[in-house]
Nucleic acid binder design. Structure first.
Lengths: 154, 154
DNA sequence: CACTCTTCCTACCAACTAAGTAGGAATACT
DNA sequence: AGTATTCCTACTTAGTTGGTAGGAAGAGTG
């Protein structure tokens, strides 16, 4: 499994958005879509090149994971609570299929002869990966961070 | 998980070697390293560019999965019975680590702040993949091929 | 309306990797 | 000596990845 910079950045950005809403405004907010986070602040806090990040945020919005507002007080917010967004959702939003064999989506690798059994292996691997990433939500990751390992040194 | 052409070819070549020994000579051979398969015949039966395959076979030999002999009646053979060689062995021989985050080997991705929990996700994914590929041997794949699905049309 | 701030979108660039090729040196057998 | 094969290095080519630049479109403010 190769995790590209794009996927990595996307996850970090989503986590940062989720955390900002939690810590910044908390549960007090009443209205509809308050607590927007700007791309610039995401880039800064997670050390991601801003213009690169903007393209990623666009993908996440198109995939329906983020909503955005332009203008002076614009920014980004999650469309769903962090409990309902999984790592798999984010990965698929920016990266397409989870497993590919030479660029093709696993099930149509086209083997002949003695290699036919390989298709099953790739499908099994795909299933194993999906199980992990689809059962881990952003909320899980945030809790793990703040309770379990509060800023360990190096 | 991206399966490169290199990894794919490596697995198919190993399977072809294992099958050739099985079908060609069987258990009759007495001496040390009989039943050598030539790179050319592997390339042909699995439709792999020969000179590309040669580099892959070299990696497999260096990793201790194949032995080779030069000269007129030269070729390749497995160093261990196909029951004791797993898919994971082959993948690691040609591809290095199974999971990488932006080129780095998973455990040293270097996250700060709210993203710290991601390391655990990648380790879990790595474990899930390893479980699958390390519990599937070449012999498993050969049996699956010959019994379960003997040359299905298209 | 003018101005500012931010997202949006397109095009582009540089570096790297993957896939494949070519040509020859070493080695083994006849 | 001669031939067949593995071995090894260097190279080419095409595609992807990571990152940058520059503006157009929208949203609020005085």
């Amino acid at each position: 499994m190769y995790v590209s910079a794009r996927s990595d950045y996307a996850l970090r950005a989503m986590l940062a958005v989720a955390a900002a809403v939690r810590g910044g405004g908390g549960d007090a907010g009443g209205g509809g879509t308050s607590e927007l986070v700007k791309a610039g602040s995401l880039a800064e806090v997670q050390e991601i090149p801003l213009s690169f990040l903007q393209g990623i945020l666009l993908d996440l919005r198109r995939a329906g994971l983020l909503l955005s507002h332009r203008g002076a007080e614009g920014g980004y917010a999650l469309t769903r609570p962090p409990e309902e967004i999984t790592v798999g959702d984010v990965l698929r939003a920016v990266g397409g299929s989870l497993t590919t064999v030479r660029g093709l989506p696993a099930e149509r690798a086209g083997y002949h002869g003695v290699a036919a059994g390989l298709t099953d292996v790739w499908l099994a691997v795909h299933g194993a990966i999906a199980t992990v990433v689809d059962s881990t939500s952003l909320a899980d990751l945030l809790n793990r961070t703040t309770t379990d390992r509060a800023s360990t040194t190096s």
